[in-house]
Structures are given as structure tokens and as C-alpha cells.
């Protein structure tokens, strides 16, 4: 059986394998620095559908079908899907998955959803409840703008602290047995709220949660930054990244040399005008499924700490003047485990 380490961490007895990954991204992501790592780059953010919501569901469906196929599996082999998105009541996921006939758990962890899905999926496998699961997360720039911000055609200025929601979906198949890399530890995050109220500065709202989970991970496991080739947070963007570094330094952890953020990697802020960086559930999902997985296969990194972060607010909570609670879940992915 898996072991509890400290308050928040689980070490898996038989770390689940990442059997396959798949990613689908929108045109803007396809022009970004990670372009060559993605399986499918769309030329049209509507993908032939007549609404942004339908387009996002189609992205979800096609990505899940692809990841199952890439693992040389059929939908009947998959015991559970763990997935989520940003839309109300998770309709992007549920409408995308409804035709697949696979037991489904819908998750909302805002942009931390991918790590939440992998954590729960890995627990299900290590607990003996599943042989294969799919973990997936998606977001769509246009459907998110519509739900959380302003109409696309409204002539507004985005503050420099704002992030850009990634259009895309990333999925992984976890299996009880399979090739490297493996999911060996998960550290589940607590909700942390240091009072940031600005929805246009979500990196600042989420950075305390990222730092809290990273510290909890080190304390629970006894690992240090030296045990990792890369620590990559979810979508804090450039401001959140700096804040996380500062918060960690205050606690005597210096990870600067091995640290980056999915929101920073996915776009070029100068030529793509994305301000603080990428965000949305899809951001770390496609970064993991494309960039991180493929470079781990190439042995560029052998042990990474993947820490997606989520801002747990709604448009209504912002209007009512509530601050933005953050959450971050950490997942250790490694090529060799002992």
C-alpha cells in the first residue's frame, strides 16, 4: 500500500506509469515556443463548430480519443476518466466525454486541475481500483473570456499583470504497469489565501499556494531542491513566479536555478502580447503532455516536480469583493524510481 509521508504527501508503492500523452492547442499556442511539442495545432479556434463551448468540448473529446489510441488501448480498457475545465458545471469536459462510455469523475481545481486529476488517478491505480485511467484538463481562451471577463470584441485594455487563457487540452493515460516516466509522489495542496482581490493578477493570488505546497513537499519527503532537475509550477506567469521565489527564499529554499512556470514557457510575452503569461486548465495540461513528457522521454530531465496552481474564484465572488483563494497540487514525475 502507498505510504503517507507527513501531512500532505503520498508515496506510491508501485508508481503508475505515464503510458501515453496527447495534446491539442489553438492557433496562438501553435505559434508559441513549445509549438513543436504538441500533437495537434488548430488553425481555427472554433474547429468547425458554431460556439466556443462546443469547440472546447470537441478538443476534449479528440484529445482523450487520441491519448487512448496512442497508448494502444481502447476506451474499454480505461477504468476512469478524471477531468475538468473552467466552464460552469464543467460542461466542456462532460459534453466532450459523454459519448465515450467511460466512468467519469469531474474535477474543478481551476488551473490546478491537471495535477488534481493525475493525483487522484494515480491513487486509484496504486490503491488497486484501476489498471488504466485518463487524466485530462482543458480551457479555451474565448469561452473563458466570455465567462470570466468581457466580450471578445469589447475595446478594453488588459493590465500588464493579466494572463492569457490557453486554448487547448492535454491528457495522459496512467497505467499500473508501463514504461517510464512514473508518478512516484503526490503532495496535495491546501487552500491558501493571502488576500489578493485582483482577478487580473492571478499569479499573485496563486503564488502563496504554490510556495506552501512546495514547502510541504520538501518537509514531508525530506527532499531538497537538489533532488530535482526541474520544478515547474502551473500558470503563475512572470509575476507569480517571482513572488513564489521570494516566498520560498523566506523559508530558506532556493530553487531559482531549476525553476520555471508553464505559463512562462508556453508563450513569448513580447511577440505574442500575453503580458504575465499563459493560464487556464489547459496551460499546464498541454505543457505536461507535450513539452515535459517528451523531454523526459529524451532524458533532458529525469526527475521533475510538477506543481499546477489554481485560482478558486468565480465572477460572482469577485463582484462581491471576496479575495481569491489559491491552491497548488504537486506531482513528482521521474524516469527511475527505487
Amino acid at each position: 500500500m502507498a505510504k503517507y509521508l507527513g501531512r500532505q504527501t503520498i508515496k506510491f508503492d508501485l508508481p503508475p506509469s505515464i503510458v501515453s500523452t496527447a495534446s491539442t492547442v489553438g492557433p496562438k499556442e501553435g505559434k508559441g515556443p513549445l509549438s513543436s511539442y504538441f500533437d495537434v495545432v488548430l488553425h481555427d479556434p472554433l474547429w468547425g463548430e458554431d460556439s466556443w463551448e462546443k469547440a472546447e468540448s470537441k478538443i476534449v473529446k479528440k484529445t482523450i480519443e487520441r491519448v487512448i489510441q496512442k497508448g494502444n488501448l481502447t476506451p474499454e480498457d480505461i477504468d476512469y476518466i478524471f477531468a475538468g475545465d473552467l466552464l460552469n458545471q464543467l460542461t466542456a469536459s462532460t459534453f466532450g466525454i459523454r459519448g465515450l462510455s467511460i466512468p467519469f469523475f469531474g474535477l474543478f481545481g481551476a488551473c490546478s486541475t491537471m495535477a488534481e486529476a493525475i493525483s487522484l488517478g494515480a491513487m486509484a491505480i496504486d490503491g488497486g481500483f484501476a489498471n488504466y485511467i485518463v487524466a485530462e484538463a482543458s480551457s479555451h481562451f474565448c469561452s473563458s473570456e466570455k465567462q470570466f471577463r468581457f466580450p471578445l470584441e469589447l475595446g478594453t485594455q488588459r493590465p500588464l499583470t493579466a494572463s492569457w487563457t490557453v486554448t487547448g487540452s492535454g491528457a495522459v493515460v496512467l497505467g499500473k504497469y508501463g514504461p517510464s516516466p512514473y508518478v512516484s509522489y503526490v503532495t496535495s495542496g491546501k487552500i491558501v489565501d493571502l488576500g489578493v482581490k485582483d482577478p487580473m493578477n492571478m499569479g499573485a493570488a496563486m503564488a502563496p499556494a504554490a510556495a506552501d505546497t512546495i514547502i510541504a513537499h520538501f518537509e514531508d519527503t525530506g527532499f531538497t531542491p537538489n533532488d530535482y532537475d526541474l520544478i515547474i509550477t502551473g500558470d503563475l506567469g512572470s509575476i507569480g513566479k517571482e513572488l513564489t521565489l521570494q516566498l520560498l527564499r523566506k523559508n530558506n529554499y532556493d530553487i531559482e536555478n531549476i525553476y520555471t512556470d508553464c505559463g512562462i514557457e508556453i508563450f513569448d510575452p513580447v511577440s505574442q502580447d500575453t503580458h504575465a503569461g499563459g493560464s487556464g486548465c489547459g496551460c499546464c495540461a498541454v505543457t505536461l503532455a507535450g513539452y515535459l513528457y517528451k523531454e523526459m522521454k529524451n532524458n533532458k530531465w529525469n526527475r521533475i516536480l510538477f506543481v499546477p496552481t489554481g485560482a478558486l474564484m468565480s465572477p460572482g465572488s469577485i463582484q462581491q469583493g471576496e479575495s481569491i483563494p489559491g491552491i497548488a497540487h504537486a506531482v513528482v514525475i521521474e524516469n527511475n524510481w527505487s
Binding site: L160, V196, A204, I239, L243
Partner: peptide
């Protein structure tokens, strides 16, 4: 923390 955020957030 709010002071840290203020310092690091770029101004238009």
C-alpha cells in the same frame, strides 16, 4: 504580501 505584490507588479 500585498506590499510584495505591489512592488513586483508592472505598472502601465
Amino acid at each position: 504580501y500585498s506590499k510584495m505584490v505591489e512592488e513586483l507588479s508592472p505598472k502601465s
